[in-house]
Design a protein around this nucleic acid. Structure first.
Lengths: 153, 153
DNA sequence: ATATAATAGTTTCATTTGTAACTAATTTCA
DNA sequence: TGAAATTAGTTACAAATGAAACTATTATAT
């Protein structure tokens, strides 16, 4: 089939195009997910991720969050400063390397963390209810494979 | 396992969380894809989608693009007006319903369309080279299933 | 030692985006 | 008919984003 035929016969369909499908699915999942906490806790996706990272590794630095979250350092910096304003996390200077800020939950932050993570897991569980066990394994496998190979961009 | 344990043992890992994985993969694929045409043709992802939609159905309206592209009407409107400025598409008023603008390629637009679509297909082919035939079928199946169910948000 | 480079994080500024309000044209239906 | 509602598309404004420049601190190398 020649390229020209894409004009004559309109063979190319966006909705079957994998990069497009991925983008659309990811966006609608993200939106649906953020609805589960945006209003309730007044946080954004970026802030959710930062909370998850701090929960995983307490007393971490912003840099380590950058590593664990696929967010840029600007985005992390802004999310952190908003979370500090909201009273969810606190920051102190690392005395051994005064460039580092060490981040940790406040009590308030810990208390929303333990609500937010189970809610996320519930969301995920609901999301993958449409799949069989086999399909879930497939999805995990395909996503991590894609992830590995799309990183080197 | 109690919720509290997410604090103590840091069990929750963002990188295994499906909504997160989806978002990250989709973003890096999108970025890698846009690199294949952004500089060369000076267009954005939104504009790429509009071109694809016009190529599929010549003399379409902005509304039909909204239907086919999972873009909002504001986004389509802006992409269309930029593509008109760039001389890739032209717009005329529908005489039967003067609310509609009917969109079509200019010669210049048609000529980049027939470059851009094969380039997209090449990108997709490269992307899925990491998969077996079976995995590609699985990916298609999983994405359309996810798409179906995440639409009702 | 000290100049240079590298790292952590923040801020600035320009661009992009999303929501809501808007104009214009058409349809509905009393 | 003609007032109210709907639809197509645009615009205005505020918020989010990204790139690059910036400050402060530490590491490197001569």
């Amino acid at each position: 089939m020649s390229n020209q035929n894409y004009i004559e016969n309109a063979h190319f369909k966006l909705e079957n195009f994998i990069p497009y499908q991925l983008a659309v699915v990811a966006e609608s999942v993200s939106k649906a997910f953020s609805k589960t906490y945006a209003k309730r806790f007044g946080i954004t996706i970026a802030q959710w991720r930062v909370l998850a990272a701090v929960g995983r590794e307490s007393n971490c630095t912003a840099s380590s969050i950058v590593e664990h979250t696929a967010m840029g350092k600007v985005q992390v910096s802004r999310a952190v400063s908003i979370l500090i304003d909201k009273g969810y996390i606190k920051s102190r200077v690392d005395s051994r390397d005064r460039r580092n800020s060490i981040l940790a939950f406040t009590n308030k932050g810990r208390s929303i963390y333990i609500q937010i993570i189970p809610a996320g897991i519930t969301f995920e569980r609901e999301l993958i209810k449409i799949f069989t066990k086999e399909e879930i394994q497939q999805l995990n496998h395909l996503l991590s494979k894609l992830n590995l190979h799309s990183k080197k961009n």
